Computed example of a mutant assay.
Amino acid sequence: MAILVTGATANIGRKVVDHLLARGATDIRALTVDPRKAALPAGVEVVEGSLRRPDTLAPAFADVKRMYLAPMPDTAAEALALARAAGVRQVVDLSGEPESWWGSVGMAVEASGLAWTHLWPADFMENTLIWSHQINATGVVREPRPDGATAPIAMDDIASVAATALLTEAYIGRSCALAGPEILTRTDLVGQLADALGRDIAFRRSSREETVTALAPTMGDTAPWYVDNVLYGFDPRPADLPTTSVPDITGRPATTFARWAADNAERFVGV
């Protein structure tokens, strides 16, 4: 019986495929919109389809027992109904707490009647790439809350947890809150990025309007939503974040932000 990875060419889904292979999985099916551009490893079965279009999913679900579900709130319930009818029994979903932006995905999973594991990640380390334009253009990061803190997690670590959960029944019925190994403020993040890039980067407290303007070149029309719903939603020093969640589940250390920044420094250059 195959393991299906939806969104298999997206940021996290692609890494889930790699981690399944690294753990010895051999019957992996990857769902992607354009198989010709998928560039997935040899031995991975590539199937065309999209969670946005449930009518394309039947071939992907055939002979599948377990699946990784990428977050797609608008069509999650319909896709899950099709999955259950096809014989899928277990789903590992990327979602969030019920009251969060992605919470409806997890609720749809539970309503489907499938065995489930929820992955509820903290802020992605990759989200700092939204600063790339202003770092290059001005050497300054503008945001409203310098002391806003979280424990950011690398997408690769989320994928590693997903692969672990797909290959066992140990996490069925669990909501896994995932975070990185350190609680860091926004100014901490900027400082570690400066070290990784080998240059001075200042943090400047800014108004809502100034922040939206600074983020618009990388975020476009989503900048106002991000400022209002994410940046103003940070709680200072959240002591209850599960900073050992990744090693507890995968058995390997979580990626530090300093390590991630050093490995991804080139992504901030020349944008």
Rank of each mutant, 00 (worst) to 15 (best):
M1V: 11
A2W: 11
L4N: 09
V5F: 04
N11Q: 11
I12L: 02
R14E: 06
R14P: 08
D18C: 00
L21D: 07
T26W: 01
I28T: 07
A30W: 09
L31F: 09
P35V: 12
R36W: 10
R36I: 13
K37C: 08
K37R: 15
A39T: 12
G43Q: 05
E45Y: 01
G49W: 15
P54D: 03
D55L: 03
T56K: 04
L57G: 08
A58Q: 13
P59I: 11
A60P: 13
F61H: 04
D63F: 08
D63P: 08
V64W: 02
Y68D: 12
P71T: 03
A76V: 07
A79F: 03
L80P: 13
R84W: 06
V88Q: 00
R89F: 11
S95G: 15
E97F: 00
W102H: 13
V105K: 07
M107T: 13
A108K: 09
A108V: 06
L114E: 06
W116I: 00
W116G: 00
T117I: 09
M125T: 03
I130G: 04
S132T: 08
I135T: 01
R142G: 14
E143V: 02
R145Y: 12
G148N: 11
G148Y: 12
I153R: 05
A154M: 00
M155N: 01
S160G: 15
V161L: 10
T164R: 05
A165V: 01
A170H: 08
A170W: 02
Y171H: 14
G173L: 13
C176H: 07
G180V: 12
P181H: 07
I183S: 11
L184E: 01
V190Y: 01
L193H: 09
A194V: 01
A196Q: 12
I201M: 06
A202I: 07
R204L: 15
S206N: 11
R208W: 14
E210K: 02
V212S: 00
T213Q: 14
A216R: 08
W225Q: 01
D228G: 09
N229C: 05
N229Q: 12
R237Q: 14
P238D: 07
T244R: 12
P247D: 02
D248W: 00
P253Y: 03
A254E: 08
F257P: 10
N264Q: 02
A265F: 06
E266F: 12
G270D: 11
G270E: 10
